[in-house]
Design a protein around this nucleic acid. Structure first.
Lengths: 343, 343
DNA sequence: CTGAAAGCGCTTACAG
DNA sequence: CTGAAAGCGCTTACAG
C-alpha cells in the first residue's frame, strides 16, 4: 500500500520574504534579526510575511560570514555498545537546546573509516570533533595539526597533547569495595573482565587498593579472576570460586553481564543474595541490572555527564581556551537489592 | 593532569591554494575537480599545493549552487533503545561511504523537542529527514508542507500521505509459531508484551493466525497472556501458565526480556529447555539472547535493513520519486539453543 | 588553456 | 529608518 509520485518545493529564501514584504534584502534581514533602526510597522510586516511563507533562514549562509557552522562531529566506534549514545545526549544537552547540531559517524573500529569520516567532517566545517572509543585503552591521536579542536572520550588519545576524558575505573573499583565493606562484608572475591581491557585492570586495581587500605585482601589471597565480559564467564568463575572459598560473602563483578552469570550460579549453589553473598558490579546497564532477582547494585560510569563535560570542553576550545591531558571523571554507585535487602 | 592554552588555525580556502599555486580561483577549482581544459602541469601543481596546505573544500560552499547539502536529519525518540542505532547504520551504509552525513537529534518522545529539531534541521537545509519512533503505533505526521521529504521508520505516520517503513510483527508472530511447529511442538502458549503496544498485539495476531492455519489454538484455548516488557512479567506469567497447563511444550515470548524471565521460571520448575519446553521470542537483542543458558531463538526485526531501505527511499524522494503509504518489512528468525538442541 | 564575473543565501558596515 | 554593496567559499558558463 504505497503510491509513487513526483513533488518538491523550493526552499523559501530571505529574498522571497523581502520581495513579498516590499522591502530590501538588508531591511528584511535586520527586521528578522531584531536589530535596531527598523520601523516597528516594517518589522511586523516582515515578520508576518516570513511566518506566512514558512521562511527558515539557511543556517550555513547565516553563519558563512562568521566562519562557524554551529555544528559538531561525533566519531564513534561504539555504536552498538552503550557509551556513545548517552555521551551524545550529554553533548546535546551541554550545547543547549538546539544551538548546535551533531553529525554522528560510525567508525566501527576501523582506522580507514575513521579517517574518512574525519575528512568529511572537516569538509563540512564542523566547529569541533568528539571521538568516542569502545574501550578505555589509549588510542592513536588523530593528529595535532587539525583546524578544529578534538576531544577524546572514553578512549583517551595516546598523545598528551590531546584532551581526553575518561571515567575513573580505579575509583569505581574502590566504590564497589567500600560499599561491600560498609554492608559488613569481609570475605570478598573479584571476578574481573577481559584482562586485555584497561577498564578490567583499572577496576581490579581499585578493588585491591581499597581492600588493602582496610588491611584486607581478596579472599584466600588469591589473584582476581580475569576472564571475559560475559554471563558465561560469570557463571563459570562463580562456581569455581565458591568451591574453593565456600565462605565468600561478597563478590565484585567486572561488569553487569558477569554479575548476571554470578547471580545464576549463586542461586544454583543455594546461596541467598544479598543475605549470604552480596554482589556488586560495574556499568549499571539498565536492561541487565534491573531485570534480575534481586536487581543489581552497580557502579554507573556517568556517560551522560562525561558527554556534557566533553561538549563543554569542546566549546571552550572552539572559543580559544584549549586544554590538554587526560581528565578523569568520577563514577557513581547505584544501590539495589543485590547488596542490601529491600533496596 | 591537563594544561590550558590558546590556539586555532584558520581553515585553508581555495583562494589560498590558488594564490600559492599562482593561478586564478577558477583554474584552481577546475584543476581540483578534474574538469577538462586544464594543462596537466597546472593541474599537478594545484593538486600538490592543495595537498601541501591540507586544503579541504568547504562542503557547504561547494554545494551552495546546487541547493543540496549532502546531509540528512535523523530525529529519534529511541536513543536509549535499540532501534535508531542499527537504523542509522543502515542509512549510513545506503548513502555509500561518506557521501552523506547524518545529523542525529534526540526528540525524547517530546513533541516540542521534535518540532524544535525539525526546524533546526530545515534551517540546516538537510536534503531529507528520517523519523524513528520508539513503538510501532502510528504517530502524528510532521505535516505535508515540508520543503524536504520525510520517511518514518518503526513508528509509522498516521497519515497515508506520508511514507512509513515498519517491521512485519504479524509475520514475526507467524515465524515464531511455524518454527515451534517445525520442531514438533503442539501445546503452545504465548506470553505477550504490553497490550498498549501495537507490536505486542501484532505479534499475538501472527501467533494465533499461524496456529489456526494448522488447526491449532493456544493451549487450553486460553487467551494470550498480555503483561509488560520485562523479565519479571516473564517469570510470573510462566509460573502461572505452567501451573494451569503443565504439559506445555512451547512458549512464544513477546520479547527477549520476557523470554529471559521465562527461562528462569522453567529452570525453577525443573523443565528442560528445549527438550521439555521450547522457547522462542522477539527482538534478538544480542546482550539478552546470547547470554542465557540455553541461548534464545529469537525473531530479529532487521533494523539495519529497515534503515537501509529508509535511506534508499529517502534518496529516491530527494531525487523526485516520492512514495506514500506504509511499507512492511519482513523479519528473520535466528535459531539458537532454546528451541533446538545444540543449535 | 586561463581568468574575470555572476551567483548560491545570508549579514553587516556604510551611505542616503 | 531604508537600501546598495561587499563578502563569506565555492562552481560554472563565458570571454579571452
Amino acid at each position: 500500500m504505497s503510491t509513487v509520485e513526483n513533488a518538491r518545493a523550493k526552499a523559501v529564501t530571505l529574498r522571497d520574504v523581502a520581495r513579498a514584504a516590499g522591502v530590501s534584502l538588508s531591511t528584511a534581514s535586520k527586521a528578522l534579526n531584531g536589530r535596531a533602526d527598523v520601523r516597528p510597522e516594517t518589522r511586523r510586516r516582515v515578520a508576518e510575511t516570513a511566518e506566512r511563507l514558512a521562511f527558515r533562514p539557511n543556517a550555513a549562509a547565516q553563519l558563512l560570514p562568521t566562519g562557524r557552522t554551529g555544528t559538531v562531529g561525533l566519531i564513534t566506534s561504539d555504536l552498538e555498545g552503550r557509551f556513545s549514545i548517552p555521551i551524545l545526549m550529554g553533548a546535546e544537552d551541554a550545547a543547549g537546546a538546539g544551538k548546535m547540531s551533531v553529525f554522528l559517524c560510525d567508525a566501527r573500529d576501523d582506522t580507514i573509516r575513521e579517517r574518512y569520516h574525519l575528512e568529511a567532517l572537516l569538509s563540512r566545517r564542523v566547529d569541533g570533533i568528539i571521538v568516542v572509543g569502545s574501550r578505555t585503552d589509549p588510542r592513536p591521536s588523530l593528529g595535532h595539526d587539525l583546524p578544529v579542536p578534538v576531544v577524546y572520550v572514553y578512549a583517551p588519545s595516546d598523545s598528551p597533547e590531546d584532551l581526553s576524558l575518561v571515567p575513573d575505573n580505579v575509583g569505581a573499583g574502590r566504590l564497589a569495595v567500600e560499599h561491600l565493606l560498609a554492608t559488613g562484608r569481609r570475605r570478598i572475591v573479584h571476578i574481573a573482565g577481559d584482562p586485555t581491557y584497561a577498564a578490567a585492570r583499572d577496576r581490579v586495581e581499585g578493588v585491591t587498593a581499597a581492600l588493602a587500605e582496610h588491611g584486607l585482601d581478596l579472599v584466600g589471597g588469591r589473584p582476581p579472576a580475569y576472564g571475559a565480559w560475559s554471563e558465561a564467564w560469570g557463571r563459570t568463575a562463580a562456581r569455581a570460586l565458591l568451591e574453593a572459598e565456600p565462605d565468600v560473602d561478597g563478590v565484585v563483578c567486572g561488569s553487569d553481564q558477569i554479575a548476571r552469570g554470578v547471580l545464576d550460579a549463586l542461586k544454583d549453589l543455594g546461596r541467598r543474595v544479598p543475605q549470604d553473598v552480596a554482589v556488586v558490579s560495574f556499568d549499571n546497564w539498565e536492561i541487565l541490572a534491573t531485570g534480575s532477582v534481586p536487581q543489581l547494585t552497580s557502579v554507573d560510569m556517568n556517560f551522560e555527564s562525561l558527554g556534557r563535560m566533553a561538549a563543554r570542553r569542546l566549546f571552550a576550545a572552539v572559543d580559544g581556551t584549549r586544554e590538554r591531558g587526560t581528565l578523569t571523571q568520577p563514577c557513581r554507585l547505584v544501590v539495589r537489592g543485590s547488596t542490601v535487602v529491600g533496596a
